[in-house]
């Protein structure tokens, strides 16, 4: 049975996705499904293969979601137009130079949001995405689950607000004292992330 409140158009889906993300929800699957369908339809007849269409649509949607999630003040009622424009630009760029990485459109989305590597560097100056993933895998293997939970919540809040969250904020979300949060973060940085080389 179809949910009568589910979005059906590109504008509705984009607006609902923006509302959901700005409200701190992790995902809005029904909106994503409509966006994917409607954007794919818009590229039909453009002489692009199915794989290319899927790749372009995915890249545009990922960029849009990252921009909203990482604090761009995108108005829900204009968001369908934003994403449609971004897709048009992506298709034009692709025709000009296939297989190039799409440029980030600052004129549409404003300043580039933090990517995974930048989030990792917020957690520890010398860390990159791969270091954080290695560290988390090692902490899971060591069954240091509180450390893992703290780091993940820290990253969630950092991504949402674009800056380092306070340990008090992380603690409130996990029902832990800020001291426990600080201890867990220190353990992760010291034990599970590569240490910077000492100054000569």
């Amino acid at each position: 049975m179809t949910d009568p409140s589910a979005p059906t158009t590109l504008d509705e889906a984009a607006a609902e996705l923006v509302h959901a993300l700005q409200d701190g929800q992790q995902f809005a699957l029904a909106s994503l499904a409509v966006l994917q369908r409607e954007l794919t339809r818009r590229l039909a007849g453009q002489d692009l293969g199915a794989d290319t269409v899927e790749e372009l649509v995915d890249q545009v949607v990922v960029r849009f979601v990252q921009a909203v999630r990482r604090g761009r003040p995108i108005r829900p009622d204009g968001s369908g137009a934003y994403i449609a424009r971004s897709l048009r630009n992506a298709a034009v760029d692709y025709h000009r130079a296939p297989n190039q990485v799409l440029p980030f459109e600052e004129e549409i989305y404003g300043a580039m949001p933090l990517d995974d590597d930048q989030l990792a560097r917020l957690l520890a100056k010398h860390a990159a995405r791969a270091d954080v993933l290695d560290g988390l895998e090692a902490a899971v293997a060591d069954q240091r689950y509180t450390v893992v939970k703290v780091v993940l919540q820290w990253l969630r809040l950092a991504e949402r607000f674009g800056e380092e969250p306070s340990s008090r904020q992380v603690g409130l979300d996990l029902d832990l004292s800020h001291t426990a949060v600080n201890d867990a973060l220190s353990e992760f940085r010291e034990r599970y992330l590569p240490n910077p080389a000492p100054d000569p």
Partner: peptide, 25 residues
């Protein structure tokens, strides 16, 4: 979800969510 939608939902999920799934294999 379809495999395409599944991939898109995961690609658009926060880094912490992806990291959590990766860390647990």
């Amino acid at each position: 979800a379809s495999p395409e939608l599944r991939r898109l939902a995961l690609q658009t999920s926060p880094f912490a969510t992806r990291a959590e799934l990766i860390a647990h294999g």
